[in-house]
């Protein structure tokens, strides 16, 4: 089976700094890939390069066999690749339903505004926000705004969703809710990349884990193997801790 998303030697430099350093990664259909790494490891840059916000300095990104390395964000979105943001980005002066309808209209194939609004209600039902459909987006709590972004991404009818720190700032109960939601999205047959800080969360939901450190991919494999990887432990906790653990 061909990979859904493939990165081949992808690098991205900002000035002299390599935010991504020749990263190669394959993602199969139906996977839930946990993308982890310390702050500044290049996780968000990877999402930005895949979704067309930044263009790779070198290397190639393909989605369903199509080269998307140089496509602008809206073209990538229309191919079926959705994302959420680390810092939520709703349209503040639109209603919740209108926010989600935007995804349905411009990437989800809705024929007109009316059918996009209908599709939006469906996505809102999926994330349990249907009763707030007519509220202005700016009035939602953070946890609900994160669900709004999920609904908006779902309305795009994506085949791949990249979730950037979807749990940041949430409390334990809210995180459990969000995880249940992620599993339900996966059950719909949507492939997921989840960027996450909380190790417990990643281990609980991912089928595979990839670790970035200083822009390089230092580990990629089954969750239980990756967290025992010496280099990964070193990246997170420092070299000395890793050596002591091994002794």
């Amino acid at each position: 089976m061909s990979a859904l998303l493939r990165l081949e030697g992808v690098s991205r430099r900002f000035g002299g700094l390599a935010a991504l350093d020749s990263v190669s990664l394959e993602l199969g259909r139906g996977e839930i890939l946990g993308l982890i790494g310390p702050n500044g490891a290049g996780k968000t840059t990877l999402v930005n390069v895949v979704t067309g916000v930044h263009t790779a300095t070198s290397g190639r990104v393909t989605f369903e066999g199509q080269d998307i390395t140089r496509l602008p964000p809206h073209r990538v979105a229309r191919l079926g690749l959705a994302r959420t943001w680390q810092i939520v980005q709703p349209f503040p002066r639109m209603t919740v339903a209108e926010n989600v309808a935007a995804g349905a209209l411009f990437a989800g194939g809705a024929a007109d505004v009316a059918s996009a609004l209908a599709a939006a209600r469906e996505s809102l039902g999926f994330v349990n926000l249907a009763d707030l459909a007519d509220a202005p987006a700016a009035t939602l709590t953070l946890a609900r705004r994160k669900r709004l972004e999920l609904a908006r991404a779902l309305a795009m009818k994506p085949r791949l969703i990249m979730l950037d720190e979807v749990n940041a700032g949430l409390n334990t109960a809210e995180i459990d809710e969000a995880l249940a939601l992620i599993r339900r999205i996966a059950a719909e047959g949507i492939t997921i990349v989840i960027i996450e800080h909380l190790m417990k969360v990643v281990l609980g939901v991912s089928t595979r884990i990839a670790v970035l450190h200083h822009g390089r991919l230092i580990a990629d494999g089954a969750p239980q193997e990756v967290v025992r990887d010496k280099e990964v432990v070193a990246a997170y906790l420092g070299r000395r801790y890793a050596e002591r653990g091994a002794a």
């Binding site: 916000v53 602008p72 229309r78 709703p90 349209f91 503040p92 002066r93 935007a102 795009m156």
Partner: peptide
């Protein structure tokens, strides 16, 4: 559709691009 796209751009242009707005 264009009017909707413009409202999205007005409120958050980067997000609009990510949602498929040209």
């Amino acid at each position: 559709r264009l009017g909707f796209a413009l409202r999205c751009i007005q409120q958050n242009e980067d997000a609009a691009g990510m949602l498929g707005v040209d």
